[in-house]
Design a protein around this nucleic acid. Structure first.
Lengths: 243, 243
DNA sequence: CGTATCATTGAAAACCGTCAAGAGGGGTGG
DNA sequence: CCACCCCTCTTGACGGTTTTCAATGATACG
């Protein structure tokens, strides 16, 4: 979990004052005038559901900070197999990697809002603002930790353990964004997205969800909204303590 | 691949002048006096084959830079399943993550040599040396890229594709360390280590190696040394272009 | 209200895991 | 120097979890 002890307060008339995700973003520790400066360097943009922000192979000359909606990041193998490396949620920063070209495609799941910066301009700004640099470093370290977790999930967990881990991960991320415990987990992504994230097929994801529902561990309010009824059992499932 | 365009030359009498891995380490861009300063902050140490450097759960109050040998990093699930998240080779830096406690165990595969620094002392030094900070950031970004690659391997590739990817990865890393193309890949780790890294069993790793040997794509010189006979086919296998 | 898309469920097959036995290699001691 | 032993690696047969293929059911959208 990203530490964000330092969140500088903002005067209520600042345009970022109403931003719900500043608290959890890499900009959480920036002062009023720094946020203003960054607003002038970047552009606010939207992406429609299903549309790409960029494609695998595109030149990576912009970085983004995510405000609202959700995206999937994925890579395609030559024969069409897809692997979803992650989901982008409000507050996330996109562009820590220093590659020339994007190694994956970023595609909006829902209508999404984000800020976009020229990479060169952004990096120049970062170089003269060590607080931001530290936040970015911390974000990178956190992403690395998340990636290692996911490697264990993909390498050594069963289908049920993977799905349980995924639900808990989403739950944690949404709680962090909203700043309060939730008992509903939104699933903006499709079953195929989840499957391609967990190294399974959509059928297996569906079957495992049905099993969780049958054992009264979760309830499917709608197709895209899960209510956790037995959090402890779900945690045990995710860690492989149970079947 | 870590960019390391800038490698500062060193007077031949400097103690780091004979270091073969400085070029590929996070210290590649440091000046003579900075290396000297760091030598005084750290301690050179060795770890015997099979012995741990630290355990999963231990307080993470030291960082390391790896000089010689090899290590495996792994996490254990409660029921004993193991996942190897990575292998440490000469030139690697260990301790980018900012966690309080280690999320994995680090264990020497071969007799190993490394430099150890107090995390607090090292971070203080880094804070006042932006070149080093940049190198560390770059190393973190690179590790993230490697981790995402590995996620695709674990999530979407077949046993054969995984092994081919692994052999190519090792080949690339050793070539980078040695600074020249090699046609022999050293496999210091056991089949179980490889299996736990690739999300397979040691039996499957063995079978896939035998298949590669039967198709004349590799030759097993000894158990721990592979000679690549058909690099292009191995690359095609790794990317899923073939069977 | 119809249609396209996505999700669920079922049955059969495939790939890899498990269990088990045998082969090979390296180190030690005679 | 050779023989023995131990450990790892290899190979085989079988079984299980997940995939694949296929059909039905649900949902969203025009």
């Amino acid at each position: 979990m990203l530490a964000c002890n330092v969140v500088l307060p903002l005067p209520p008339d600042h345009p970022c004052a109403s931003c719900e995700v500043r608290r959890v973003s890499v900009f959480h520790a920036l002062a009023c005038h720094e946020l203003t400066a960054l607003r002038n360097l970047g552009t606010r943009m939207t992406v429609e559901a299903g549309h790409p922000l960029f494609h695998q192979g595109d030149a990576a000359n912009r970085v983004y900070t995510f405000v609202a909606g959700s995206m999937r990041l994925y890579r395609l193998l030559p024969d069409g197999r897809r692997h979803v490396t992650g989901f982008i949620l409000p507050g996330d920063f996109l562009g820590i990697s220093r590659e020339e070209n994007h190694a994956f495609t970023a595609e909006a799941i829902e209508p999404s809002i984000l800020w976009s910066f020229s990479r060169a301009v952004f990096e120049a700004y970062v170089d003269s603002h060590s607080t931001l640099k530290d936040s970015l470093f911390q974000a990178a370290a956190h992403e690395l930790q998340v990636a290692h977790n996911q490697m264990v999930v993909l390498g050594r967990k069963t289908a049920m353990e993977r799905l349980a881990s995924f639900l808990l991960e989403l739950n944690d991320r949404f709680e962090r964004i909203d700043g309060a415990p939730l008992d509903q987990i939104a699933l903006p992504m499709s079953r195929s997205d989840i499957a391609d994230y967990l190294g399974l097929t959509k059928e297996t994801v569906s079957r495992m969800l049905s099993q969780l529902r049958a054992s009264r561990i979760v309830r499917l309010d709608t197709l895209n909204c899960v209510e956790v009824r037995d959090l402890q059992t779900l945690r045990n499932l995710a860690e492989g303590y149970l079947s």
